[in-house]
């Protein structure tokens, strides 16, 4: 039986009736049309599907959309504001933090969550914070540089209200 969900996605209220088995990543991509969030392994290992749910980094391939009912979800599309890249996006741009770009949305969302908790992380803390995200191209070094760059340029900023869910009831 379909279930009604109300999810605030990138500051926009979404109402849909979904099958309970619909994974959050497919909800975001196929129902909301936000294809920035990638599906890689589908087995919770690669991290390319990472989004923020109520401000916390989660793998959206290992969560049902119905579990996000009443929550605020931030995807990579929610990072830039008024045509201005988020400091984490800017860091990936400046430091060449990507090659093919497949892992990048997940890497950036995990980085945003990391910087929200640890404003000036060490390289070890960045490695630990991005442990759940795999990259087949860069060798990680430039990704760590990118997060460092973001930390030095106001990367702590989460989007306003992004850690707040919609009113439940």
């Amino acid at each position: 039986m379909p279930v009604h969900v109300h999810v605030n996605v990138n500051q926009s209220d979404q109402h849909h009736d979904v099958e309970p088995r619909l994974l959050l990543v497919h909800y975001l991509r196929d129902v909301c049309g936000l294809t920035g969030t990638h599906v890689g392994c589908e087995t919770s290992l690669c991290g390319s599907c990472t989004v923020l749910v109520d401000g916390k980094a989660v793998k959206s391939c290992t969560m049902f959309a119905v579990q996000a009912d009443g929550s605020a979800v931030t995807t990579v599309e929610g990072l830039a504001k008024d045509g201005q890249l988020h400091p984490v996006q800017q860091g990936f741009w400046e430091c060449h933090g990507l090659q093919c770009g497949f892992c990048t949305p997940g890497m950036m969302m995990a980085s945003v969550a990391l910087l929200a908790q640890t404003a000036k992380p060490s390289r070890e803390q960045i490695t630990e914070g991005l442990r759940g995200n795999l990259c087949r191209c860069t060798g990680y070094s430039h990704i760590i540089d990118a997060v460092n760059h973001a930390a030095a340029h106001g990367g702590v900023r989460l989007q306003p209200d992004s850690a707040q869910g919609v009113a439940r009831g």
């Binding site: 919770s44 991290g47 990472t50 916390k56 980094a57 989660v58 793998k59 290992t62 969560m63 995990a110 969550a113 990391l114 630990e128 914070g129 442990r131 759940g132 995200n133």
Partner: peptide
């Protein structure tokens, strides 16, 4: 346990 995302859920 696992990684940050796993520990968050």
């Amino acid at each position: 346990i696992g990684d940050v995302q796993v520990r968050n859920k």
